[in-house]
Amino acid sequence: RRRVRAILPYTKVPDTDEISFLKGDMFIVHNELEDGWMWVTNLRTDEQGLIVEDLVEEVG
């Protein structure tokens, strides 16, 4: 499975499927959606939700 790491922190918009995260958080990518969004699991918090790919980098 594809893994990505947050390069910046992010605070979710209330009442959306987004998740908040810290710089350095690792995610497993489940689905890549339109307009650069990804459905992921945050490995630190075990939370699932949407993040935008501009805020993460690939992990080898």
Score class of each variant (00 low, 15 high):
Arg5Leu: 08
Arg2Phe: 06
Pro9Cys: 13
Asp54Lys: 13
Glu18Cys: 06
Leu33Cys: 12
Leu8Ser: 14
Val59Ala: 12
Leu55Tyr: 15
Ile51Thr: 03
Leu22His: 10
Tyr10Leu: 03
Ile7Asp: 02
Glu47Cys: 09
Glu34Tyr: 12
Val13Asn: 13
Arg1Trp: 15
Val56Asp: 01
Thr11Trp: 08
Asp54Ala: 15
Arg5Ile: 11
His30Cys: 12
Glu18Met: 08
Glu32Pro: 07
Ile19His: 01
Arg3Ile: 14
Thr45Gly: 03
Tyr10Lys: 05
Ile7Ser: 06
Leu33Phe: 13
Thr16Ser: 12
Val59Tyr: 11
Tyr10Met: 04
Met26Val: 15
Gly36Phe: 04
Glu47Thr: 06
Trp37Gly: 06
Thr16Pro: 01
Ala6Gly: 04
Asp54Ser: 13
Arg5Tyr: 07
Asp35Ser: 12
Ala6Thr: 02
Arg2Lys: 10
Ala6Gln: 01
Ile19Phe: 02
Met26Arg: 06
Val13Pro: 06
Leu50Asp: 01
Ser20Leu: 01
Thr41Leu: 11
Ile28His: 08
Gln48Thr: 12
Leu43Gly: 03
Phe27Lys: 00
Thr41Gln: 09
Phe21His: 02
Val40Ala: 12
Arg2Ser: 06
Val56Ile: 11
Asp54Pro: 06
Ile51Cys: 05
Thr11Pro: 03
Val40Arg: 00
Asn31Met: 14
Met38Gln: 03
Ile28Asn: 08
Val40Thr: 04
Ile28Arg: 05
Arg2Pro: 07
Gly24Asn: 07
Leu43Ala: 06
Ile51Met: 04
Glu34Arg: 14
Ile7Asn: 05
Val56Thr: 11
Pro14Phe: 07
Ile51Asn: 00
Trp39His: 05
Glu18Ala: 05
Thr16His: 03
Gly60Trp: 14
Ser20Phe: 02
Arg5Phe: 07
Met38Leu: 14
Met38Trp: 06
Leu22Lys: 11
Ile28Gln: 07
Phe27Tyr: 00
Ile7Thr: 09
Gly60Glu: 13
Phe27Asn: 00
Met38Gly: 00
Leu22Asp: 10
Leu33Ile: 09
Gly24Thr: 03
Phe27Met: 11
Pro14His: 08
Thr45Val: 03
Arg44Pro: 00
Thr45Ser: 08
Glu32Lys: 12
Glu34Thr: 13
Phe27Asp: 00
Thr45Ile: 02
Tyr10Thr: 02
Thr45His: 02
Glu18Leu: 05
Val52Thr: 12
Lys23Gly: 07
Arg3Gln: 10
Glu57Thr: 09
Asp35Thr: 10
Gly49Lys: 00
Glu47Arg: 06
Leu22Ala: 10
Gly24Ala: 05
Thr11Val: 12
Glu34Gln: 14
Val52Glu: 12
Glu18Val: 05
Glu47Ile: 06
Ile28Pro: 00
Arg3Gly: 05
Glu47His: 07
Thr41Phe: 06
Arg1Asp: 11
Arg3Asn: 08
Val4Pro: 02
His30Phe: 09
Glu47Asp: 10
Tyr10Cys: 04
Trp39Val: 06
Glu47Pro: 01
Leu55Ala: 11
Ser20Met: 02
Glu58Lys: 08
Thr45Phe: 01
Asp15Arg: 08
Thr16Lys: 04
Ala6Trp: 01
Trp39Leu: 08
